[in-house]
Design a protein around this nucleic acid. Structure first.
Lengths: 143, 143
DNA sequence: TTGACGGATGTTATAATATATCGGTAGCCT
DNA sequence: AGGCTACCGATATATTATAACATCCGTCAA
């Protein structure tokens, strides 16, 4: 399948971590990943961090800066492998994270940067709040 | 003076840290702050983290999520004390950080969130790249 | 006055996140 | 084969952050 093409470049560790992130419905910290791989024997932090970096470089995963956590890249719910900028909406209650890309936001941010002569290389947009489901539950708000 | 009103609520530790951040021309990590206060005797991490949180709550400082670092809030180059959302442009070479607020970006982000029923509470926008000065130096780019 | 309470601050210890550095292994060129 | 390089993994340690508990200080009722 063509969807598997990008993963052909991944080694066993990288594939396992990508699968683990894909199965999770929430962002995983690097140490969550280490725990999730414990049935393959002990894995040391640098191994995981390097694999995560590889996945990020390949556009297969993203790092959430506000959470120190990692998610598989999903574009409209599908795992995707092309490098792109993205924003995230992260629910503070259930942790589920929605990825979005907004051309217009990108354009405006580029404009804001250009006005001061700043050369943008990496853009992080992360919105914390309540997802639609958690917002409808009474105890997520005040209580 | 009205500009001093907000700082009237700060205790000695909080004021010292705010001044330290204001004097720095780059974001400081919490441990940079601890080092910067060493002439006042040893200060423990929780003391600094609590003071930083207070400054953030008062709108006098911001946390840079992509750097694990803190800056005094500047609005157009002036220290300001009103609570507001802000974006940052962080130079990867010199570390200097420009704060910007863009109403339109805020509005678009709100729209992106609302489309999926997400209730936005906190928005982090951080652009990494090269500031105008560093971009003009040849060795900042490729070499 | 005084002592019970509560909030802010300080201290000790430790948790959570991340990386420097070194050694091994496999491809690859000559 | 020998040696070079690039990747890979392990040990150790650095960096960032917080939990848990102690202390101080102001308030207020008796």
């Amino acid at each position: 399948m063509s969807a598997q093409k990008a993963s052909a470049q991944l080694n066993a560790m990288q594939s396992r971590i990508r699968d683990l992130l894909a199965r999770a419905d929430k962002p995983l910290s690097a140490y969550d990943v280490i725990d999730g791989l414990r049935d393959h024997g002990r894995v040391a932090p640098p191994t995981v961090y390097r694999a995560l970096q590889k996945l990020i470089d390949e556009g297969l995963a993203h790092r959430l800066e506000t959470r120190n956590a990692y998610v598989v890249c999903r574009d409209g719910g599908h795992v995707c492998g092309h490098r792109h900028r993205a924003g995230f909406m992260i629910c503070r209650t259930c942790g589920r994270t929605l990825e979005f890309g907004d051309e217009e936001i990108e354009r405006l941010l580029g404009g804001a940067a250009a006005r001061s002569g700043f050369v943008a290389e990496r853009v992080a947009i992360e919105i914390q709040g309540l997802c639609a489901t958690c917002a409808s539950l009474p105890d997520a708000n005040g209580a």
